[in-house]
Design a protein around this nucleic acid. Structure first.
Lengths: 352, 352
DNA sequence: TGTATTTTCGTGTACGTACACAGTAGTGCT
DNA sequence: AGCACTACTGTGTACGTACACGAAAATACA
């Protein structure tokens, strides 16, 4: 079986317009050196033919290389979360390598904003076309973003957004709605009128401002539904097990809690505490498909996990940059991830 | 920025082996006409270089065309379900068109097995490399599958599987687990010991044997958890609103029902009945992200929808065939879709 | 009118691979 | 030795596009 071999592409355009393919090429890339008349004529033919350039041939012939940087937190022993976006980026990279895409990775520590600045400066010194950025530290990320804009470097934000700036695209969850869904799920776990605790576990709450957005969304559910439940919030600024345990124990000594909502992936720490202390009467909702979390989901200690496709965030992050530069697609400014609900029954089929 | 221009690919192999690129080419495609000695040498170099052919150049130079057929039910006015896989296939096609992939669509009527045979025969008369098949009618699909095997035509099943045969890949839900999850969800809606009805709405139950698999999974949840709930099953062999309404009304007159599980996308028909008759005390679980279903989810008449990524099924169906033929990848025999839970709160973010 | 300059356009080569065709070396046979 | 035949290998062109370079035409200026 053979491809159909009617004159196709540039050659056919050139034939119809009585010019050479070079001239057609000039029009396509709207380079200079074509008289207005011929340009018009060629453009008409292009439109009429609905000509679509052969991307294969294009990137084969093109010597262009696009260089993208990735700036996201390093995967830490405490949370494997950031492995997922990394994996997604690598998957995408494998698919588009041959189109002349280079990717360089930079990582900062989630509990040290200095490392963010250090890596960001490295990126600025080098020469990149685009950047995939997890803007954890708002002010630092903003500063960096403006510098990128000045240098015409396109940014894609993943995982969390920053208000009032407009990157090429934001790819991640709607944090408010995500929290609100968690609130909604609580109605399946405890009757109305219960005692609910929102629990933030974060060393640098500034680095995880998205936690507060989730908390706000969570609370909004109860307000909108005129719930009689009591919703309190507790924040721990250390992430090690002992600190979390101590703070939580202290709180639970003085307060009744029927449901606990952990605003990030640290929910396994709480689950561990519940398990070791044999606490079974508090329902537990948290975030992210991590092996430790899933373990407690399986055991029934965590009731629901909410997930937001971290792998896909990375995957689409890179493909978005690629689409913008190589295929000059127009890009969706906001690409919201689904809000997935994981239970004991369906997690096995989940794809991060 | 320029691509690095170290001699790469075939040319470099040829240089190192002191042969021409044609000889290298012969080895790569293990064609005849190369002495054992040179073949060995070239293969060694290929391995050493970890040579990966440039797929762009390959399919640009190759005049090969791969022709795939799609055989799935026609989208009917009663259910728009099958639009989704179609959309997925078209998306994938757009991505890989330029690699020399042709796709031809065939549709049968879900309530008429004759149309299946008719379209299947059309496919056999033409000359296809691979087929994406929704094997709704088991015996007919089996017969067709065997004919394809005899002709070395590769099949990919989507949406539902057939036991004891081995297509290139099955892409779809684990139906048993899907039903079991529905069972599990019921615990969030009604207390144990309630009256539960499994409701099948299907003109040709044989065409939708997957409904029964879901029902079995559903029941298994209650057995495994030694539930005291009563689980009954009712099947209606007509799909129009009046018939469904009549059968359901008759049943409800004689039986108490606390939760109703509709095993397919017809759940909106039941929801409509609930709405018009102001039935609010029966919880409702059903399938598929269809506009009509979502409407009732939004209204709170349907409590949960379970979805299985029909768009992605189509998308991956075509990409699987492509990967097998064009990139000669090894293919996962079973590609299970996630079992997604949709509620009023998160459906807006769902991607089919 | 002749020359310099700019504008406009065409030719040719390259990207990495596939494949038709032609060419060479070696073997067997008369 | 001459011939036929096989086994092996190289040359050249094509796929559709990009781009360097040079040629031609048009314009400007003296």
């Amino acid at each position: 079986m053979q491809k159909n071999n009617e004159l196709s592409g540039v050659k056919e355009i050139a034939r119809r317009a009585n010019v050479s393919i070079a001239t057609v090429d000039r029009v396509i890339h709207n380079r200079t050196g074509v008289s207005a008349k011929t340009k018009e004529k060629i453009e008409a033919i292009i439109k009429e033919m609905d000509y679509k350039p052969n991307l294969l041939a294009r990137s084969l012939a093109s010597r262009k290389v696009f260089r993208f940087a990735v700036l996201i937190p390093r995967e830490s022993p405490e949370t494997e979360y950031w492995r997922a976006p990394l994996e997604g980026i690598n998957t995408a990279w494998a698919e588009i390598r041959m189109y002349g895409v280079e990717v360089v990775f930079f990582h900062y520590e989630l509990n040290d904003r200095q490392t963010f600045n250090r890596e960001a400066n490295k990126i600025l010194k080098d020469n990149f076309h685009g950047i995939i950025l997890a803007p954890s530290f708002i002010s630092e990320a903003l500063e960096f973003f403006y510098k990128c804009e000045a240098r015409k470097i396109k940014c894609v934000f993943i995982n969390s957004d920053i208000s009032n700036v407009s990157p090429l695209s934001y790819i991640g969850p709607d944090l408010f709605q995500s929290g609100k869904l968690a609130g909604n799920l609580s109605k399946y776990l405890i009757p109305d009128g219960g005692n609910i605790l929102i629990f933030n576990v974060s060393r640098e709450l500034g680095a995880e401002h998205h936690l507060l957005k989730k908390a706000t969304g969570f609370k909004s559910y109860f307000e909108e539904n005129k719930s009689t439940s009591t919703v309190n919030m507790l924040t721990v600024h250390r992430t090690d097990y002992d600190s979390v345990m101590a703070e939580l124990a202290a709180y639970l000594k003085d307060n009744t809690v029927d449901l606990l909502f952990v605003t990030n992936s640290r929910v396994s720490t709480v689950a561990k505490y519940f398990e070791t202390n044999n606490i079974t009467n508090i329902k537990l909702i948290g975030y992210d498909y991590l092996s430790r979390n899933v373990e407690y989901l399986e055991k029934g200690i965590i009731d629901f996990l909410i997930c937001q496709k971290p792998i896909e965030q990375g995957y689409r992050g890179l493909l978005t940059l690629y689409g913008y530069f190589v295929e000059s697609e127009k890009i969706e400014k906001i690409q919201l991830m689904p809000i997935d609900i994981l239970t004991k029954e369906n997690y096995k089929y989940y794809k991060n």
